[in-house]
Design a binder for these strands. Structure first.
Lengths: 134, 134
DNA sequence: GGGTGGTTAAGGAAAAGTGTTTAAATTTAC
DNA sequence: GTAAATTTAAACACTTTTCCTTAACCACCC
């Protein structure tokens, strides 16, 4: 039974990086190429992101489905849709228009291109008005 | 590039479970055996544990190595060793004797058998006196 | 005993992840 | 502008994970 997402190699690299070593220096220490150190470090950071996203998901379990932003939608029209749907459920969204748009884009950058939604985004809301995307 | 540790199947099961469905009911809905639902749920919970452990590791990056509890050591002797080493570094451990022992055992149950350390445990400490184990 | 909910083990096929190299491209720092 | 540092891509062998089935097992409760 594994513990943690990071491999020994990945932890090793992160520790050396924390100490301020360059990838080249680490490569020499662990006897491999600097390109490989780069790949390992990148994989490590990706794993950390995935760990965060996984725990994020747990919050969506306490949330209910609010609506779907359909592919092609103008991002600027999203807030009104969301506010309307939240009101129907008697819930108050925690974010104003600006921060709502920012949160949408920050949460899933690859899902938007400019002002346009690239693929369907499911919106969830909990009792506190927090929004989650799936 | 995947997001999150949980597969679609795992999320699906967790959502149904959150709603209070039994494994048997879920099995019928997603057209598989209840044994399989059990396995998927178990894997999901394991992944969530791994996500937590991964983020735990990040804290150890801000911590420095304090000492090693060697295999065979009596668990009750650990606090004194740890307090002594922390004092050498001018750091105050955040836990009293009792909670320190509990924290040691809770963090890595499989590493202890009764009062005995089964395999070496590395102890790390940060500026706040928080302890981490690796 | 029979029903319900949950867990475990063995085995298999498909999918995903890891470490690696090589080579090229890009960014950062002086 | 040059050198160093970092990033990316493609390909490979290898290991692990995932989902699935079947079958058995445990702990209740009536």
């Amino acid at each position: 039974m594994k513990q943690g997402l990071l491999t020994d190699r990945q932890k090793e690299v992160l520790r050396y990086r924390k100490k301020g070593l360059t990838q080249q220096q680490i490569a020499e220490i662990i006897h491999t190429s600097k390109a490989n150190v780069c790949t390992i470090e990148k994989a490590a950071l990706e794993n950390i992101s995935r760990a965060r996203e996984t725990l994020e998901f747990l919050y969506t379990l306490d949330a209910v489905h609010l609506c779907t932003l359909q592919s092609g939608l103008d991002l600027l029209k999203a807030p009104e849709i969301i506010y309307t749907e939240a009101e129907k459920k008697g819930l108050k969204v925690k974010y104003d228009t600006i921060s709502l748009i920012n949160r949408l884009r920050d949460a899933n950058p690859e899902r938007f291109r400019g002002r346009q939604v690239r693929e369907d985004v499911e919106i969830y809301i909990n009792k506190d008005g927090d929004l989650y995307f799936g």
